[in-house]
Amino acid sequence: MYEFDIERPASIVAAAKALNAEGAQALGGGQTLIPSLKQRLDQPATLVCLGGIAEMQGINASGNDLSIGGGTTHADVAAGAGAYPALAALAGNIGDPAVRNRGTIGGSLANNDPSADYPAAVLGSEAIVRTNLREIAADNFFDGMFATTLREGEIITRVDFVVPEKAAYAKFDQPASRFALVGVFVAQYGDHVRVAVTGASEGGVFRWAEAEAALAADFSPAALEGLSLSGDGMISDLHGSGDYRAHLVGVMAKRAVAAA
């Protein structure tokens, strides 16, 4: 780790101001950033800690709407998002207890690790990502591996979900990291279904349109029979080939539908 300064703003406005400074870097739960700093892979001048901002904390449920503060930890979502069981279950299976008690939903989304779980839930639930500047629909938020449409210094303040009629997340663990080798989130909203896939694609989280159409017509695992994805453009590494990941997307999609 190199030396850095740390600021602990108490409000979103103060945090945004601090992030305007040269070399400033937002710090959420630090579950990716801190290991990178320890490896000396990054050298921010100032870390702006978002953990002390009360207005970014907590979960508000109202009818079918669920709004989660950007600074809410995975453990708090697991325990407090009972109105959206599929989301709570997903949060409760991220990493390990240490990760879940530090890592935040805003941090995970801003990092957009191609194997992270939350991007699948957010894209699969057509959530709205709210920032200090604007609101961004999930379809417009993710922009490839480790990339989002967030601007420099922009802060995810809340994430708003509409609870679907049915939903589930099926994850197949990468054996070492237990990140998603493939994770599929399915959600049924009235006459349409969203299927979001994480872990598999070199382009990061994506929607599987063919599966969405099939499930909209018949929300059952059988509806996915015969559908397949190409291994081209899928991540291929020592934990699995692109073809294997493409195959797993089909398997996990069926399991998610069955569990929903």
Binding site: P175, A176, S177, F179, L238, H239
Partner: peptide
């Protein structure tokens, strides 16, 4: 499983890729 690439770089240099 400890895996090197053809250039001798260790692909399993942490618990992210070396499965205990």
């Amino acid at each position: 499983g400890c895996v090197y690439d053809d250039d001798g770089q260790l692909l399993t240099g942490s618990y992210m890729d070396y499965a205990m």
